[in-house]
Computed example of a mutant assay.
Amino acid sequence: MTPRRLLLTPEDKDAPARAGRLRGLGLGERPEPEFDAFADRLAAVAAVPYAMVNFVGEHRQFFAGLHQPGDRPLTAVLDREDGFREPVRHLGREYGFCPHVVVRRKALVLEDVQDYPRFAGNPAVDELGVRSYLGAPLVDSTGIALGTVCAVDLAPRPWGRAGLETIKALAAELTERIAQREYRV
């Protein structure tokens, strides 16, 4: 018997359907002020330096909403020709924990990712310095998990039951906003 290799990026059989649904909703391709404001609010509520509204496609994840400190960006920052600096808002599916939340369709609380062998070797840990994560799926009316809302810190965090309930409530709120958008499209 050959030993099973630990799968760092989960198999995602729903990815093609999710990508089609995201395209139909016009989500996951561009930053949106509404989602940036939501990420700002999440960062304030969770008292974290990083928060995202993340849509997970077939090959990448896109932060349609992003809160990160200007002096310590989690994602790369590009210098534009007009002198402004703009964060890169996408990562491969192998980065981070949101792809796991989307596939599991359940919230994920990692107070210290180093405590979980499945997650400790993730590139987000080694390359970006992520140490704690709190995320919940955005499951739409068709039952598809479109992405996540998540809070991230570079230090371990005792999220506890209150953190879990907060992230789930915020995910439900944003899911409702996305449903309302669908009727306006």
Rank of each mutant, 00 (worst) to 15 (best):
T175S: 15
T142A: 14
G65I: 04
V149P: 07
A162H: 12
P49L: 05
F55P: 14
F38G: 01
V130W: 03
D36N: 15
E86C: 00
V48P: 15
A43E: 06
L74I: 12
L8G: 08
L25T: 03
Y50A: 10
G20D: 14
T148K: 02
R4N: 08
A64P: 02
L78E: 15
P87G: 08
L174N: 10
Y133T: 06
G20W: 10
L110P: 04
R118K: 14
L27Q: 05
Y133A: 10
R104I: 01
T9Y: 05
P156R: 06
R5V: 14
F35A: 15
D140H: 15
T9L: 07
D71W: 11
W159G: 01
E29A: 13
N54E: 15
V53Y: 08
D14P: 00
L8Q: 14
K106P: 00
A47V: 09
D140K: 08
L164T: 10
D40E: 11
P33I: 01
L154H: 07
N122I: 08
A19D: 12
E81H: 13
V53I: 13
T75Y: 00
A172T: 09
I178K: 13
R60Y: 00
E176M: 11
L8P: 09
V56N: 08
K168Y: 06
R157K: 10
P73S: 02
H90A: 01
L128K: 04
T148P: 02
S141D: 15
A145F: 02
P10T: 12
L91T: 08
A107E: 13
L146D: 10
R72W: 05
L7W: 05
E81W: 10
A37G: 00
E111T: 13
T75W: 04
V130N: 05
V48F: 03
G83Q: 01
F35L: 09
E81S: 13
A47D: 14
C150H: 03
V77W: 05
V125Q: 08
P156Q: 00
V139A: 06
V152H: 02
D126E: 11
D12N: 09
P156H: 06
Y183T: 10
R181G: 12
A136F: 05
C150L: 02
R23M: 06
R181M: 13
E11I: 15
H59D: 15
E165V: 02
P3V: 01
L22F: 12
A19Y: 12
D79K: 07
H67K: 02
T175G: 15
I144D: 07
V101F: 01
T175Y: 01
A17S: 11
W159N: 06
R181K: 12
F55K: 04
G121S: 03
L6A: 14
C98K: 02
H90K: 00
A151N: 02
F63P: 00
S141C: 15
V139E: 14
E165H: 11
E11V: 14
E32P: 09
A179T: 11
P10A: 10
Y95K: 00
A124I: 03
Q180V: 11
V101W: 08
E34L: 15
G96W: 03
A39C: 06
D153W: 14
E94Y: 06
L110N: 03
L74E: 09
T175V: 03
L74G: 10
T75R: 03
L110I: 03
H59F: 04
N54W: 03
R181P: 09
G20H: 13
G160C: 09
A37E: 09
M1I: 01
R181S: 08
L7D: 11
V45T: 12
L174C: 10
R60E: 13
G160R: 12
L8R: 14
P137H: 02
